[in-house]
Write a protein that binds this DNA or RNA. Structure first.
Length: 239
DNA sequence: AACCAGGACGTGA
DNA sequence: TCACGTCATGGT
């Protein structure tokens, strides 16, 4: 049964990698941590974050910046914005597009992304603290399904399972079927955990996605390292 | 030196 | 609907 397999995989990944502490927040990066192994900005097992509109906004900007771009590049862009004092919705709203572009260059696609961030910022301000509907986000130019769901899950704490290229790749291999339809994959996963409490769903979707990213980077890469993959007993690609 | 990274949009068939 | 081109920097 697919559902049980998906549940098993979640628990295996969680046990192997541990809580991932998504979504990283820039202010936590500068905090002195007694755990040197803790990746900066991440906050494992603290699901209270984000705790204010400013942090929500930062996550949303990061979600746009990371479109088809590695997070290390996004960090550079966010650092630039932070150091300039730009990483606030009221400031982004004030500054010119060219000014924004010059700070987010490391993340690539800077012309498009600057426009996307400006448009989203206008929307975010008009929210005035309200939590947006998914359809509202999808109507905004520059926000597709994945970006919308990453905002809903990690910034607005709503239980949407987000699907990305990694998710499609891993589970295409595991089930030995081409899984490419965003909506089908999302409803499959949300259905698996439909009976969980809302609070648990949030944690599960939060961790699951980040664990998928972690496993995809380390093991289930484009050229997979099946030899030391601890999912191989469940993976049809390896049978 | 090609290839890829936590996608989305516009176009033509 | 779908396949494809475009956007762009910096890592490996």
């Amino acid at each position: 049964m697919k559902n049980k397999k998906i549940r098993d995989i979640y628990h295996i990944l969680l046990k192997q990698y541990g809580p991932q502490g998504w979504w990283p927040l820039i202010d936590l990066r500068n905090k002195t941590s007694n755990d040197v192994h803790l990746k900066k900005g991440y906050h494992p097992e603290d699901y209270t974050l984000p705790e204010n509109r400013s942090q929500q906004f930062e996550i949303c900007v990061g979600a746009i910046l990371t479109q088809n771009t590695s997070w290390t590049q996004v960090e550079k862009a966010l650092d630039n914005l932070k150091n300039k004092g730009f990483l606030y919705f009221n400031i982004i709203n004030e500054i010119g597009k060219e000014e924004l572009i010059s700070e987010i260059k490391p993340s690539g696609y800077f012309n498009q992304k600057a426009g996307k961030i400006k448009i989203f910022t206008d929307f975010f301000i008009k929210l005035n603290g309200r939590i947006p509907k998914r359809e509202e986000l999808l109507r905004i130019w520059g926000i597709g399904k994945e970006t919308a769901d990453s905002m809903l899950l990690y910034a607005f704490k709503l239980p949407f399972f987000m699907v990305d290229a990694y998710t499609k790749r891993i589970f295409s291999r595991i089930f030995n079927i081409i899984m490419d339809d965003y909506d089908k994959i999302q409803s499959l996963f949300q259905n698996v955990f439909r009976d969980e409490f809302e609070r648990d769903k949030l944690i599960i979707f939060n961790e699951f996605h980040s664990l998928i990213v972690e496993h995809s980077k380390n093991v289930c890469k484009k050229k997979p390292n099946c030899y030391n993959c601890f999912l191989k007993d469940l993976c049809e690609h390896c049978l």
